[in-house]
Design a protein around this nucleic acid. Sequence first.
DNA 1: ATCTTTGTTTGCGATAGCGCAAAGACAGCC
DNA 2: GGCTGTCTTTGCGCTATCGCAAACAAAGAT
Lengths: 226, 226
Amino acid sequence: MEDIFQETDLFEGLSTDQRDKIIKKGFHQVLKPKSILFQQGDPAERFYMVNTGRLKLTKLNEQGKEVIMRYIGAGELTAAITSLKDWEYPLTAESVEDTEVTGWDKAGVLNMIETYPKIAINLLNIVLTRIDDIQHRYLELSTERVEQRVARTLLRLMRSAGLKKTEGILIDLPLSRQNIADFSGTTLFTVSRTLSAWEKKGWIKSGREKITITAPHSLVLFSENA
Amino acid sequence: MEDIFQETDLFEGLSTDQRDKIIKKGFHQVLKPKSILFQQGDPAERFYMVNTGRLKLTKLNEQGKEVIMRYIGAGELTAAITSLKDWEYPLTAESVEDTEVTGWDKAGVLNMIETYPKIAINLLNIVLTRIDDIQHRYLELSTERVEQRVARTLLRLMRSAGLKKTEGILIDLPLSRQNIADFSGTTLFTVSRTLSAWEKKGWIKSGREKITITAPHSLVLFSENA
DNA sequence: ATCTTTGTTTGCGATAGCGCAAAGACAGCC
DNA sequence: GGCTGTCTTTGCGCTATCGCAAACAAAGAT
């Protein structure tokens, strides 16, 4: 087994051996791009960790409007809520590229916590960090204007999926205008207009489902002061 | 010690004795109305549980715009994030009425988790439930219109601070139009207009910093279908 | 009882952002 | 190498919501 788990938080403080033992007990799954791992509303069986690839986590409201909660990559968790209670999945997880995940059901989680209490602490840490993050996003959504939020969205994606190229930093994901809108809390049209403007300013270069940030610093400034 | 802790989740599975022992180790504090318990940005020392009374949890952005994240009452926790890592308080906690809280610092938390591992599980449960809640709120903020969000805000407050009266259910909190706006992600003016309209329809009765919901069912319908 | 402060209402104009429509661009496919 | 389907762009009108101003109302202070 390779060392992609090294950097994760869940197994912090555990030996490589212990980690591997836990992973071996997990339920492994390989996903082609655009596969649904689980669907919002289904009875939640497992919580998952991404090994390689990337998942898009979306949430629908009753009227069918969609919001992207986040994109997660190697080492990140989702549906942690199912680790303890009998819930329905609160959102839908879909792969955006070839992706491998490991999942554990409730019994598995309780078992690993009993065997390695440190896991509970690690989980707590991860989950508390998520709260902080989403509260911050809530504040942004509530107080900032659309353009500012779009800027923040691009920067977030850049940090989590950025790939250095000669022209700038490529967001290494198939990313449509609609995706950006769903992530920023706005519409396809407004995103398109905004990106056009930034392209004219030379801050980004964009193609079909593809964005390269050429002037990250300008975007950062804009996202903080606009 | 009275039995206000009976219904809390943090001590679930523990005996009354064990619970009291933990509480005795905590740092007790009594707050007059409108006192600051802790301020966003300050180094986080303790996490708190409300014994009696109520706290308003607010978050400011860089431009000084304020959002109310939630109101919490007996048995509920805040600043749980400080229980494990060295952070700054991510928000400000202010009492809205006479309030008593108990706090524990990092060492205290680690100690109680080691002594009673069940506490870690309980904490995890609480925190996971919070994530679910705030993700849902994020979805609402992102997809719903102002009036709908105001309706949901009133209903939330009704459920957590409602007091049955002959005319309806009184929200038992000093609650200004501005507060509702900060909680719903809108402005004082829009809230005022909205409440006026609902008062004409007979759904609510309102006074200065005081709201009674006379037709909860209409509000629920409105919040779900509007 | 009067003055001051703080909260509320409402009219009115301004505007950010929405959302349709129609055209253009790109990728994949037979 | 043309065809089809999906994604993107942009003009344009629309409307939900904002935010000022000014008047009003209630509570607290002297």
